[in-house]
């Protein structure tokens, strides 16, 4: 029993980190309607940023500033936000899908930099021996994990509270207004580009925060932590849970990540070894199907967007969902 509990603690740490990542994405897509096709890039920038700031100094590396973990975490998040700023500045005033293309590009670029810029990222070997925050203060590693889970949960809770507050604030209502109809919002004197930019940067920073927390948990970072498939997994988590709703986003993480880890174990036991090289493709197909089918048949996910601010808005939404003309 104890073993299962200890495993669950471990599992929940990963889930919570992904939940933070998904909440960042939810701010961009669910609340603002910005399509980020390179989630993994911002996660990776946060992770590498933190790793470089807190890592031990080594002669062959540029980094290794040995900063306290909290500073590293903030630094990583800030770097991710900065990357978000660059991409968003280039694209947000243009066609909406240019942002999608540019984020896809930054994902590929970050992967290449991680792999090739040895002096900064350790190249394919990654960065090793990263200190885990306050690891020495705990008697057993499992006790440490429990405390790390508490800390990560607290941070996730803070992000959740911040986002909930933000989207209910006037700023959040403008966000949704822009998502629904940017022209109308502009006619009301709001500047859609500036507000989108803010939301995108904040979302990117939250993703970077998740990356830093992952580094603190594992104590190691390397390029294969950030494979392109992760972007699709994160998207599946968001869309299954229901975009536009933070509770749904967190639920989606539990469901998708849980099924993913279980299905891996099941497949390795059920499918004959000769076919297992295809099993990965099968799993990716399932993720793709989940995304496409949810979009087609249940666009609001398991929970869906939370109910609205005023009944007038509800009426407007009903009208939008049942368009009489298009």
């Amino acid at each position: 029993m104890l073993g299962i509990a200890l495993y669950l603690v471990f599992f929940l740490i990963v889930v919570t980190i992904y939940a933070i990542l998904v909440m960042g994405l939810n701010l961009q897509w669910g609340f603002t309607g910005l399509f980020n096709a390179g989630v993994v890039a911002f996660y990776a920038i946060g992770a590498y940023g933190t790793a470089i700031l807190i890592g031990p100094e080594r002669p062959e590396l540029i980094g290794g500033f040995e900063l306290p973990f909290a500073l590293g975490l903030l630094g990583g998040a800030a770097l991710a936000a900065l990357a978000g700023l660059v991409v968003a500045l280039a694209t947000l005033r243009l066609r909406e899908e240019y942002l999608a293309i540019a984020t896809f590009g930054i994902a590929i670029t970050v992967q290449l930099v991680a792999l090739n810029f040895d002096a900064l990222t350790g190249g394919a070997n990654g960065l090793i021996g990263l200190p885990r925050p306050m690891f020495g203060y705990f008697e057993t590693p499992n006790l440490y994990n429990v405390c790390y889970l508490v800390a990560v949960l607290a941070i996730a809770g803070a992000v959740y509270a911040l986002l909930e507050r933000a989207v209910r604030s006037p700023w959040g209502r403008v966000l949704r207004a822009i998502r629904e109809d940017a022209t109308a919002a502009r006619s009301l004197g709001k500047n859609p580009t500036a507000i989108r930019l803010q939301a995108f940067i904040l979302g990117s920073g939250i993703m970077g925060l998740a990356g830093g927390l992952y580094v603190g948990f594992i104590g190691f970072v390397s390029p294969i932590d950030f494979l392109p498939i992760l972007t699709f997994q994160i998207w599946a988590m968001l869309i299954v849970g229901g975009s536009g709703n933070n509770k749904g986003a967190v639920l989606g993480v539990l469901v998708v990540w849980g099924l993913w880890t279980i299905s891996g174990t099941l497949i390795s036991q059920v499918v004959p070894p000769s076919l297992q090289s295809q099993a990965g493709a099968g799993q990716a197909i399932i993720i793709g199907l989940v995304i496409v089918l949810t979009l087609l048949f249940r666009p609001r996910g398991l929970i869906g967007e939370e109910s609205v601010v005023s009944k007038h808005v509800r009426a407007a939404r009903v009208a939008r969902d049942n368009p009489s003309s298009s």
Binding site: V14, I218, S222, I224, D225, L227, I229, L230, W260, T261, G264, T265, I267, S268, Q276, A279, G280, Q283
Partner: peptide, 9 residues
């Protein structure tokens, strides 16, 4: 167990 080529798994 299968790691699916992904560290987190």
């Amino acid at each position: 167990r299968d790691d699916q080529g992904q560290p987190s798994i």
